[in-house]
Amino acid sequence: MSLLTIAFTLLFYFAGAVLLAGLVYRIRLYATTPTPLRIPTTPAPTTAPGVVRRMFFEVTLFNSLFKSNKWIWLFGWIFHMALLFVLLRHLRYFTDPVWSWVSLIQPIGKYAAFAMVAGLFGLWARRLLVDRVRYISSPSDHLMLALLVGIGLTGLGMKYVAHTDIVAVKAFFLGLMYFDWQPMPTDLALNLHLLMVAMLMIVFPFSKLLHAPGVFFSPTRNQIDNPREKRHLPTRETAAGETSA
C-alpha cells in the first residue's frame, strides 16, 4: 500500500470518528442541559403540532431569515439546498448497488454544485463588503467559507475539467466501510478535495457548524407557548424535549 493510501485511510477513520463522537457528545449536552424557564419568541405556537410546523419551515425554508434579510436568505438558502443535493449525490460512492433514488437525482446534483459555489461567493461578498458583517467576522468565518468553496471548486474541477478515476474512488470508500482497504488514486484535485472534506468533518463539532444540530434545540423556537396551562419545569427526560411536552 502506498503512503498516500495509508495516510488517507487513517485520516478518514480519524475524521469520521471525530465527527461522530463530537456530534453525539454535543447533542447529548444540548439535550440534557436544563431549560430553567419558558422563553419562546413571538409569534409562538400554542400546540405541539404548531411547534413541529414552525421548526419544519425554519429548517427547510429559513423562515425567520427570510423575514430578516432577503440577500442573506437568498444566498444562504441556495447554498444549503445545493449542499443537500450535492451530499445526496455523493451517496453513490458509498452504496453498491447505488440506490435508485440516488441515481435519479444525479443530474440535479451535478448542477447544484454550481449553485452551491455561487451561494457561497454571495455570502462571502457580503462578509467582505457590508461593513456590519465585516465587523463581526473573525478569521475562522472566512476560513470556513474558503474551505467550502475549495471543496466545491475542486469537485467541479474533477467533474468538468479533468476527470478522476471515480471507480477507484468508490472502491476506496467501500473498502473503508468494509475494512477491505483499497488504494487511493494519486490525483492532485481529488487528493485536495478529500483532504478538505476530512478537515471539514474534523472541525464540524468544534465550530459554528454546530448550528445544524443547534437549531433543533433552540428553546426560543422549539418551546410551546402554554406556560399558564402547563407548568414548565426545567428538566425533562425526553431529548429534543419541548415538542413532546
Binding site: R26, L29, Y30, T33, P34, T35, P36, I39, L65, S68, N69, I72, G76, L123, R126, R127, V130, R132, V133, I136, S137, S138, D141, K208, L210, H211, G214, V215, F217, S218, P219, T220
Partner: peptide, 16 residues
C-alpha cells in the same frame, strides 16, 4: 441553560 449553550455554539455570524 440550554438556551445559553445552544446560542453560544450556533451563531454563524450571518449578520441578519
Amino acid at each position: 441553560s440550554r438556551a445559553l449553550r445552544v446560542f453560544l455554539d450556533s451563531c454563524v455570524k450571518c449578520g441578519a
